[in-house]
Structures are given as C-alpha cells and as structure tokens.
Amino acid sequence: MEIPKEKLIWMYETMVKSRYFEEQMEQAYMEGKAPAFNIGAGPVPGEMHLSNGQEPAAVGICAHLTDDDTVTSPHRPHHHAIAKGVDLKKMTAEIFGKVTGLGKGKGGHMHLFDPSVKFSCGGIVGAGIPHAVGAVLTAKKRGTDDVAVAFIGEGAANSGAFHESLNLAALWNLPLIVVVEDNKYGISVTKESSTAVESNDLRAPAYGIAGEKVKDNDPMAMYEASKRAVERTRAGEGPAIIEIETYRYLGHFQGDPELYRPEGEADSLREKDPIIRLKNYMLEQNLYTEEELTEREETVKNEVDQAFEFARNSADPAPEDALQDVFAE
C-alpha cells in the first residue's frame, strides 16, 4: 500500500508532537515531587499515565478520521487526544487544573472532553467502549457515515464492557473499531498471565467481525490496517478489532518503581523507536530532507511549548467553582 506523503508527514509530526508533549509533561509532573516523591505535590498532581512509545496506535488510525468521527480513550489518553486534534492549550490547562482547561479544572488528565472533535476519555478500564457504541448508534439513527474508535489497553479486553459492547455493535452492525494497544502490561501483570488468547484480534470471530494484528509498533502497518478497517466499517460492513503490539517506555504511571519489568527492557524498546523508524523511511525515500524534518519538528514542539505556557499562565479555578456544573441549568 502506497501511503500518501501528506499522511506520512502528518503521522510523523503528530508523533513528534505527542512524544514531546509527554516529555514536557514528565518534567512538569516531577516539579515539586523531588527529593521525596509525593503524588499530590507540584503543579500537576494526581496520577500521571504517559504514552511515550505508544504513538503509532493513535496516529495510524486517526489519520483516517474526521472531526465528526468519535474517539474514546482510557486512562492513558494524551496521544489519542493529540492525534484526534483536541485543543492542545485547553488540554494542557486541564492537566494543570486550570480554569481555562477543557473541563475548567474539574476533570484532570484522565478525564478530557472535547466535544468539538468528539473526543472523550475516562479512568475506568473498558468503560469508554459502550460510549463509542452510543456515538455510532446515533450516527446510524441520523443517517451519517461517521465511525467511532474506542482505544483500550490489552488489559481491558478481559473486561465485561469489551465483550458486551462488541456483541452489541456486531448485533446492530454499528461502525465501531476497537483498537487494542498491547503494551504487554496491565500495570504489572503481563498479558501472558492475564489473557487466555495470544492476541485479542483472535476474539473477533466470536462476534463475527473483522480482526487484524499489527506487529512491532509499526506506524505504517497501523495506518494500513486502520485504512482497511475504517473503510469497511464506514461502508456499513460492521465492527472490527485491531490489536497493535506497542511499547510502553515508562511505568504504568509516573512514580511506578517497575520492579516487575526485566532490566533493560525499556532501553531495548527505545532502540526500535517508531518515530525514528518513520523518519528514516521518509529520508530513505527522499520524501523530505533532514533540514525539512527538523523545521517541522520545531514547529510542533513550539506549539507544545505554547500550550504549556498557556497552561502555566492560566488562573486556578475559584475554590467555590467546585459547586458548579453538577447539573445543567
């Protein structure tokens, strides 16, 4: 499959943006948390689940989506949000708990909602899949051809919500794609010790739907598998599961001692970094020069820097704002 140049560069820029965002967030998160780690201290308190290494899953499929397509995401949502085009300033401000954030500081990093691009995420494993089902049930009722993508980790494929939702989506022939990001671990528990099948795409025949596996965190293979799935489901040919073998460079959350992880695992994964691989491919194909790519990298990094500046300079919510927004007027 020939991937259009503009799609390749979009995926590259978006992965760079997402990675740089997480690197900045990693630093911001640690402010006030040294020498002793205190989860509630610093400008970004609470749990922090970063996505460094998992970018191919997000960009490979979001390259095929429009603003009218829905994406739901779990507790590790930043790469999905960025790939779906969530407002970066408001998203960053939300993570800093500021009044200018997507949820005026009421949501935080696991609870980002941007209805303008139909993005939502949540902190309960598997729970976003039914919301994606509802979005495309709506699309079907309204006669549009919008699709929905529910991102989950491989651990969520063992939840009831996964199986109930896929049965329902298949039964009602809804345009739903579940993307399973297999980063090998559900916190500390390996996939081998939690999952009865080798790969979750193998569960697709149980619902009479399509399943596909993407190996080795390959953004281009993810793009191709996603293109097949999105085109098929948008044409009314039913739901699909895509499982992508991806890498989690960091702990489950920041501050995770990662005692369960073999020594050197993360380093060996970084040697196969998907961003570098895509960059090398584009250079080898003479699609862009090194200088052109550097310039584009600077542009998206600058966008992230501005988002962080916006977030840091934004005001905190007034304490009593906590009492607002429980109910719509």
């Binding site: 939502s120 509802g134 009722k141 049965n167 329902l168």
Partner: peptide, 26 residues
C-alpha cells in the same frame, strides 16, 4: 424496532451506549 430497541442482557453496554448517544444530543 429502530426506536424501541430490545437489547441483549448487557446493561453495561446499553446504558453506556445511551450515555454515548446522549453526549451526541440524542
């Protein structure tokens, strides 16, 4: 049956789907 929908015994899925539909304005 398009507007009065019998569901499987999947309360998580169909209540969650109602949430997803309501978020879209249904």
């Amino acid at each position: 049956p398009d507007r009065v929908m019998d569901t499987p015994i999947s309360e998580t899925a169909f209540i969650g789907a109602a949430i997803g539909a309501a978020a879209e304005g249904m």
